[in-house]
Design a protein around this nucleic acid. Structure first.
Length: 375
DNA sequence: AAATCGCCCAACCGCAGGACA
DNA sequence: ATGTCCTGCGGTTGGGCGATT
């Protein structure tokens, strides 16, 4: 969860300028999830100070390249006792290594299911498409590529794919043409930001973000499946701490969301995926599968049904995720949301608002207001 | 042939956070 | 409530090695 108020600021570092329907659809969803998980986010600063992994710098431990003999010892031990218990493993296995080193050696090199050798064209395509969605979430990408480790994919990306994309005039961060990327404002560039960018973004955040959040959240909050959202945001639901490798794309996305620090990239992911859908992914079935899974998760999260790809339309250089019109709930929702974003507010709402009572009435011009609201 | 360069990738580092005592 | 253990993660490093000068 959030470790500081800055985290929250980063998380909402998405101004209304990004107002695609798809974005707001998810934005409002995630915003509302916070209503029941915010209560714990401030106190996590204390917890993070408390938790410090002791470093494995014990005397006499070997570092560097592994020898065949060491590999054999490790393999034999894991085959006999199974994975886990890495801290005590070196002693038991007769290795002068720290547990962490053993775990990495096993996970990245010795594991029997690791596929070694050249990456195929299909694998490279998958990596590119997955990177467009996940950014540098190598473990998330690795889960979709059986037999490949996050380390291997990361290395391959940095040494081969990245260069190839640049050569082709594609920005490896944004997956858009380099010309286009250079003219984009900071917030829309890529999944990663350097420290300067981050701090700049924080500075640029004013009360309007909080105000906007409150408005959207209050308006649409009652609709959402809070328990599902809670899980995804990481407030302790069934997906929290989920680390078991899985072949389910849906589960993967949830796992990633819950494990990573919430920030704007979580939302950019969806926004970018939407943006990419009609161009990058249009002829790639594996990427479409990934893309479909993201929107499956949106459905899981919110209870709103959506059709994928066919209902992504562009208008005025923006992409829109169109909800399934056959569902009256969705039509209503989109109507409301659209009117809301146009600033019509309650005065012009022709809809019955009785079921959309605000969660709480707060001063929505500051984060203090939000504090009260979430508290 | 020797020196230098640049690339590659295995391994390391430090942080985060869940589980548990 | 606090502290430790354990594991996962993303970023970085540095040694090996082939290519080039």
């Amino acid at each position: 969860m959030f470790s500081s108020k800055d985290h929250v600021l980063s998380f909402f570092d998405l101004s209304p300028d990004h107002n695609t329907k798809s974005f707001f659809f998810l934005f409002s969803s995630l915003s509302l999830s916070l209503s029941f998980s915010f209560s714990s986010f401030y106190c996590n600063d204390q917890k993070s100070r408390m938790v410090r992994t002791p470093c494995c710098r014990a005397e006499g431990l070997k570092k560097g390249a592994w020898t065949q003999e060491e590999d054999q010892k490790l393999i034999a031990y894991v085959q006999h006792h199974g994975e886990g218990g890495w801290r005590t493993l070196p002693d038991k296995a007769g290795l002068k290594r720290c547990g962490k080193s053993c775990r990495l050696r096993w996970a990245n090199y010795l594991r029997p299911d690791i596929k070694r050798g050249e990456f195929s064209q299909e694998e490279e395509d998958s990596i590119i498409n997955l990177h467009a969605i996940h950014g540098n979430k190598w473990s998330a990408i690795a889960r979709r590529l059986p037999g490949r480790t996050d380390n291997e994919i990361k290395n391959h990306w940095n040494t081969h794919i990245k260069k190839r994309l640049i050569k082709k005039g594609i920005d490896p961060l944004t997956h858009k043409s380099l010309d286009q990327s250079e003219t984009l404002p900071d917030k829309s560039i890529g999944h990663q930001e350097d420290d300067d960018q981050k701090s700049n973004n924080k500075k640029s955040l004013g009360p309007s973000s909080a105000r906007f959040l409150n408005r959207v959240a209050n308006r649409f909050g009652k609709r959402l499946d809070h328990s599902a959202l809670s899980d995804i945001i990481g407030s302790g639901g069934p997906f929290t701490g989920h680390t078991t490798p899985t072949t389910s794309a849906s589960e993967c996305e949830k796992s990633i969301s819950s494990l990573s620090t919430p920030n704007s990239s979580n939302l950019h992911m969806i926004h970018d995926a939407t943006s990419l859908s009609s161009s990058t992914f249009s002829n790639d079935t594996s990427a479409q599968l990934v893309y479909d899974n993201i929107f499956d998760d949106i459905e899981d999260m919110t209870g709103f049904s959506s059709k994928i790809l066919n209902d992504i339309v562009s208008h005025d250089d923006e992409d829109f995720l169109m909800l399934d019109e056959s569902s009256s709930d969705n039509t209503l929702f989109m109507k409301e949301l659209t009117m809301f974003l146009q600033g019509d507010k309650t005065e012009t709402m022709s809809l019955n608002d009785s079921h959309l009572a605000p969660i709480n009435v707060v001063d929505d011009y500051s984060f203090e207001g939000i504090d009260n609201w979430f508290g």
